[in-house]
Design a protein around this nucleic acid. Structure first.
Lengths: 213, 213, 213, 213
DNA sequence: GTCTAAGCGAGACGGTACGTCACGTCTTATC
DNA sequence: GATAAGACGTGACGTACCGTCTCGCTTAGAC
């Protein structure tokens, strides 16, 4: 009965003795390197060197380069949220009563975020890594994507109760009807991602393609 | 309009002397290796070895592993089309007069294709590579994605003329309203990709989220 | 006079952490491969593979294949000397009082060594490499050739003091008068290298070509 | 009895149809490249490219890079001889009656040639190649070295008849006594190769190391 | 004067080795 | 015991040349 934590075969490091200093330095190094050189040309050795950290310190705490970057990214988001909201990091979805306006505002903000050069490279890299690696993808979805989607779901459910959305509609599908096309254009670069597109999406999705009788 | 191929400065190989034998062997090796070991564990050396080809023969004709796989994939599609349609490779979009039914049929078929284990690994790999590398992404879209989307656009335009789609709707946006969510679920694995989901999408998109007055 | 090793700009490895095991394995692999396949067909990859060592471990410590072999050869000599002399590796030149006899004995031994198939291939390879590459040649001369020549010089100087060599003679030139022709025949393979030739050389060199008045 | 030339298995090219133009261009390219980049960095592809010649034209007529260079070098010597002597290329060894003076003159000229930067690189390269490759070495000795040595032998034999060299001396050994040390210094770069050294060699060799009674 | 077969320039091909980079593991010394 | 440092075995990278081969083109010598 030697080990406190999981008795699994691989050595479980003692997280209470972990160096906060190193952790922060690794986050910063990872993000800056991905921003400068791109994800593919960012290496664990490079992160360690820039962070002034031994390679083993990275391998001890993360299973892969993608995992490091994901955590760094989550941390970035938390810090931004903390700085902005002051609260516990929970963004709120606007509810002015005008569903279309609210959705357009949020989708426009999302567009702005997606094309912001500061976030674009690491976001794309993480998304791509998650597409190929299911485990990483699951973490990516759980930590970064799903929380946002839940906000949409909440707003749409409220709209449904207010009678602004038909009864038979599954709010989850409705969310994807809006977010899916945005994501599609961003990831695949088929056509420019603009505010106008965001507005068009909302109008189409709410009004439907079929003519109103 | 003199030269078909790239007139670039660096050594341009003479494509008339290219070995068809090697090209085919490389396609097959690339596809089989990605299928067996996954994209990340597929190497150019491995492809060359399995194809019985010198590495230089790959580097002479393709700039990257992703480019090889993309071409192999395009070739696979062409061969399949040739075998199936007998014609010049152009699939046709069904038009029974019932727009909803036609869209559901096609989306269901797309779902089946996306979850087919034979195609899933290379498709994901290529998509992910294109997300990170704009040049490759552009080629991916142009050669593989856009042709399919144009079939949707054609069908929707016909529907619009028949009065089955509202006049103000941009058919391109309409297509993305259907395809975007599908792609979103497939790439990010948020929720299972099923025929039911395809049907729900069509219903939502055609009918709209807002209640009919 | 701070640093023993090269203070060069490029990554200087820490020699205190060097693996003795690998070093020895590399020496052995290099010597055996040159013996079996010849120098030209010996490759760094081959040495690394046979030594069970990464290529980088060779490139980290040696600048070239020739440098590896030179060190391996020097090491071989040191080990042989240690095994034989028990002392610090210094061979001694015989001094029986009979200069001609002593020289013949040593030259005959040299002949035997030069034609020994075990040493011939690597010796030739190293000499040839040194002929073309001045830096390597200098190291070869300093580490392997010059120590031997100095023994000759010492013996000849003693002979000069004993009145067995004329006063005006430069001992260094005298040494080369004996060693040069031997080396010439060995390297260029003009005529067979035999004990008889060694004897003839000593007689000619001591007695001179011109008739004694 | 199908083939005119050697009925050996490998295709024997028809030398009557050989392109003199290409041959000369290859000689020039080979010599200039070795002079500029050194032997090791000279490649057959490089020679072919500079000569404006297909690789196969080289492989058709020569078995190796060294063979090309050797022939180029022999040709160079022949052309020089033709230009100088006007005759059939046979240099003559001076015979003024003063053996020591004649030998010194020739050895000094040899020294000058050996240190001439124009010839040094290819000479060293060829010598080194011949040291390692017996077949090439034999050709090198036969075509380039032996003819020169025979001139020495002739002069020494004449001196022996004139009573300037002792009867018991083998002229061949005597030649090597003079040429060997020169070659030794040149090849191994132990000490500077000078006219003074040439003179000292002649004096030592003629007078002998042992004191005259 | 044609015809045909060789040499020729060019360069694609299957290979081997190069020298470099980064991986993930391990060891050593420091804190 | 976590850490900075970095040597190690491993394996892929992209490049350089190897020696063979296959193309058209040209250029004799035989008809």
């Amino acid at each position: 009965m030697a080990d406190t934590a999981t008795p699994g075969t691989p050595r479980t490091p003692d997280s209470t003795r972990r160096s906060e200093r190193s952790r922060r330095a690794i986050y910063e190094a990872a993000l800056s390197l991905v921003g400068e050189a791109g994800y593919a040309r960012t290496t664990i050795e490079g992160i360690a060197a820039r962070a002034g950290v031994g390679k083993q310190t990275i391998y001890r705490w993360w299973p892969s380069k993608a995992a490091v970057l994901l955590e760094a990214f989550v941390d970035l988001g938390e810090q931004a949220a903390e700085a902005a909201g002051g609260g516990d990091g929970g963004y709120e979805f606007p509810d002015t009563g005008d569903l279309a306006a609210d959705l357009k505002a949020v989708l426009r903000a999302t567009v702005d975020e997606l094309v912001d050069p500061k976030y674009e490279a690491p976001s794309r890299a993480l998304t791509a890594a998650g597409i190929v690696d299911p485990a990483l993808g699951a973490e990516f979805v759980e930590k970064l994507l799903e929380p946002s989607l839940q906000l949409y779901v909440g707003r749409l459910r409220a709209a449904q109760e207010a009678g602004d959305v038909r009864e038979g509609i599954d709010p989850r599908v409705a969310v994807e009807l809006l977010v899916g096309p945005l994501s599609h254009r961003w990831l695949l670069r088929t056509l420019p991602l603009t505010h106008a597109y965001a507005d068009a999406l909302v109008d189409c999705a709410l009004g439907g393609l079929a003519p109103r009788r």
